Computed example of a mutant assay.
Amino acid sequence: MRYRMLGDRQVSALCLGTLPFGTTVDEATSFALLDRFVERGGTFLDTANCYCFWVDGSRGDDSEALLGRWLAERGAHDEIAVATKLGALPDPARGAEWPANRQGLGAEVVARAARESRERLGVERIDLLYGHVDDPATPVEETVAAFGALVKEGIAAQVGISNQSTPRVVRSRQVAAETGSAPYAAVQQRHTYLMPAPDADFDYQVHADQELLDYASSRPELTVLAYGPLVNGAYTDPDKELQAQYRHAGTERQLDALRAVAEEAGATANQVALAWLMGGSPSVLPVIGVSGLAQLDEALDAVELNLTTEQRERLDQARRWNEISDTVV
């Protein structure tokens, strides 16, 4: 395993996402995956207070609660950094349709939900607390102040934001600097090797754009994390259909480059995609989602894969939009 700094905390270069743990992945399997991750040097876990509310019988707290049980049973509170998110849990008072009825990032929600997450996780302080989905109805000043208050109170060590546009990330960090609040130390967006189509619509999800990557490149105190880095298995599993947002005239060219580099490196396309993220500028920290030990081991092996300068140039060249049509196919 390799390690890197996330704000003022050293964490593993890969983060294990635990979205299905405790719902579609049972407790025994979840514990086995967590144990293997730690055995191989992993120290960074990702969850949220809404995983997986859409599964029958779930209230949304299953993943956090399972992690709390695992941390207590293994006595791993000090060695493991846990990130969780708030604001996306459905609020019946806001209507019946999600994501329109999500709780949002108002001060009252942030203060209450953070304390509830801390209790479920069984920790004194949450290592990294995100706003899960942007809340345009709430001024960034209110949200930034609410997260800053949690850091001052010792409820959260560091704070971040997910699924927020780059201009609003920049504005939020400016507000923090102007008011003396804790700035966002992390931003987690959808991101992978494949470029999305120019008109791709991910609904409430926000894909990392070049503006964000350029902004973070000169700010080492801000870490960019990527969820969905393996496009739900579509790089390597022929039975997994590639999402429509990634299908365009340049898709095959990019996939061909990815597969060619994988063959040269004696690696899988998944591993090359992860290595490309980790080895770029800025270095992106992938959040991986797995349901089996083989998937986990494959991803962890990617940490040791070093792409050559020429291989990276070929991969980057295949992604350049000015040399391909932007027609979605």
Rank of each mutant, 00 (worst) to 15 (best):
Tyr3Trp: 02
Arg4Leu: 15
Arg4Phe: 03
Met5Leu: 13
Gly7Ile: 08
Arg9Cys: 06
Gln10Tyr: 03
Val11His: 02
Ala13Asn: 09
Ala13Gln: 14
Cys15Arg: 01
Val25Glu: 08
Asp26Tyr: 05
Ala28Asn: 09
Ala32Gly: 04
Leu34Glu: 03
Arg36Phe: 00
Val38Gly: 00
Arg40Trp: 08
Phe44Glu: 07
Cys52Asp: 12
Trp54His: 08
Gly57Tyr: 12
Gly60His: 11
Asp61Tyr: 13
Asp62Val: 04
Ser63Trp: 13
Glu64Asn: 14
Leu67His: 03
His77Lys: 14
Asp91Cys: 07
Ala93Pro: 05
Gly95Glu: 11
Ala96Trp: 00
Glu97Arg: 13
Glu97Pro: 00
Trp98Ser: 09
Pro99Ala: 03
Glu108Val: 14
Val110Met: 03
Arg118Ser: 08
Glu119Phe: 02
Leu128Pro: 01
Thr138Asn: 02
Thr143Cys: 07
Thr143Asp: 09
Ala145Gly: 09
Val159Gln: 03
Asn163Pro: 06
Ser165Val: 10
Val169Ser: 09
Val169Cys: 13
Arg171His: 10
Arg173Ser: 02
Ala177Trp: 09
Ser181Cys: 14
Ala182Val: 03
Tyr184Val: 04
Ala185Phe: 00
Val187Ser: 10
Tyr193Pro: 01
Tyr193Lys: 02
Met195Cys: 08
Ala200Ile: 09
Asp201Phe: 07
Leu212Lys: 03
Asp214Glu: 13
Tyr215Ala: 10
Ser217Asp: 11
Thr223Asp: 01
Tyr227Lys: 05
Ala234Ser: 15
Asp237Ser: 13
Pro238Ser: 12
Lys240Tyr: 00
Thr251Met: 06
Glu252Asp: 15
Glu252Arg: 13
Arg253Cys: 08
Asp256His: 14
Leu258His: 10
Arg259Gln: 14
Glu263Ala: 15
Ala265Gln: 15
Asn270Gly: 06
Leu274Gly: 05
Leu274Arg: 04
Leu277Met: 14
Gly280Asn: 12
Ser283Tyr: 00
Gly289Thr: 06
Gly292Ser: 15
Gly292Trp: 06
Ala294Trp: 06
Leu296Phe: 02
Ala302Ile: 01
Val303Glu: 15
Gln311Gly: 07
Arg312Met: 13
Arg312His: 06
Arg314Ala: 12
Leu315Ser: 01
Ala318Tyr: 08
Trp321Tyr: 08
Glu323Ile: 13
Ser325Ile: 13
